[in-house]
């Protein structure tokens, strides 16, 4: 009797697993099927490397180079701002902070992770954008730079949490050994603990990249959303926001082209996930 229950439950669990796999397959196939026709019609080269996006003009142009470059620049910028902050926060929390600070900062970090992206966007729009305008004396603060800052803050939780976990997992005896040999606390931390937790820290950065590339709502509200080639203090549109901002009214080839953008974005995310798997599985981390 209990064996039958076991079998039934196993079947149920398998079904749950299959639902997840099914969703991924469905999305993949749907994106490929609906994304290919526009690329065919526009031409892959013109689509990927065209510099002008004018989807509703009388003679429409569908070049997504501005979006691709903006997404790449924006993510790189967010990583450049966010990774140092996140990394050093993680080092402090894992190796130097007293217990109560570690607990309370950890709580704040997880709170930061659970703030909805629209709230980031709203605060960015009402506080950050005017601040950027004042600070740099430019006409309008809705720029690539503002988007980078918002993204940098948004990726902090993933960088901090994953890095702290990796640093915590470094065996105590490594550090005790280094200290016993006369290394200072800082030397121990950066020469022993950090290298030992390397794969976890790299994974945290890749996770951050994934979050930054895929974010739509928050950047839509602070980046100005005009399809220009990216400039640090210019109005820009990301891959994600290109889809989100035009989808509601799009029709015909324009709609198909938006699916193609989504496909490009999907390829980006796939590559990032692939790298993440390589890093976490291939690394010789101290787990």
């Amino acid at each position: 009797m209990s064996k039958t229950i076991d079998k039934v439950m196993q079947g149920f669990f398998l079904l749950c697993g299959l639902i997840t796999v099914g969703c991924v397959c469905l999305i993949t196939f749907y994106l490929i099927i609906s994304g290919i026709p526009a690329v065919r019609e526009i031409g892959l080269g013109k689509f990927l490397f065209g510099k002008v996006w004018a989807s509703t003009a009388k003679e429409p142009l569908y070049g997504i180079m501005p979006f691709i470059l903006t997404s790449v620049y924006g993510t790189v910028g967010a990583i450049m701002i966010g990774v140092p902050i996140g990394f050093f926060t993680a080092v402090y929390l894992a190796k130097f902070a007293p217990g109560w600070i570690k607990k309370s900062v950890g709580f704040v970090v997880s709170l930061l992770a659970s703030i909805p992206s629209v709230v980031y966007g709203l605060v960015g729009m009402l506080v950050l954008v005017p601040a950027v305008r004042e600070l740099f004396q430019i006409a309008d603060g809705a720029t690539l730079f503002a988007a980078m800052i918002v993204l940098a803050v948004m990726i902090l939780p993933s960088i901090i949490n994953v890095s702290v976990t990796a640093l915590d997992a470094v065996p105590k005896k490594y550090e005790q050994g280094a200290l016993a040999l006369g290394a200072t606390e800082c030397e121990t931390c950066f020469r022993v603990s950090v290298p030992a937790a390397k794969s976890g820290i790299i994974a945290s950065v890749v996770l951050g990249i994934g979050r930054a590339v895929g974010e739509a709502m928050a950047v839509m509200m602070v980046s100005g959303n005009v399809a220009n080639m990216p400039k640090l203090f210019g109005s820009v549109r990301f891959l994600t926001t290109a889809v989100a901002s035009e989808m509601s009214y799009a029709s015909g080839l324009q709609k198909q082209a938006l699916f193609s953008i989504a496909l490009v974005l999907f390829v980006f995310i796939m590559v990032i996930n692939f790298v993440l798997r390589k890093v976490t599985l291939g690394g010789d981390g101290a787990k």
Binding site: L126, G224, S235
Partner: peptide, 27 residues
């Protein structure tokens, strides 16, 4: 001005437009 607009920001809702104009004195 069809197809001829040079915009600084392209926003997706009326509320966003009003909020942005409210916060930028040159908008």
């Amino acid at each position: 001005t069809e197809d001829a607009c040079v915009l600084r920001q392209e926003l997706t809702s009326t509320g966003d437009v009003i909020a942005t104009v409210k916060s930028n004195e040159n908008a």
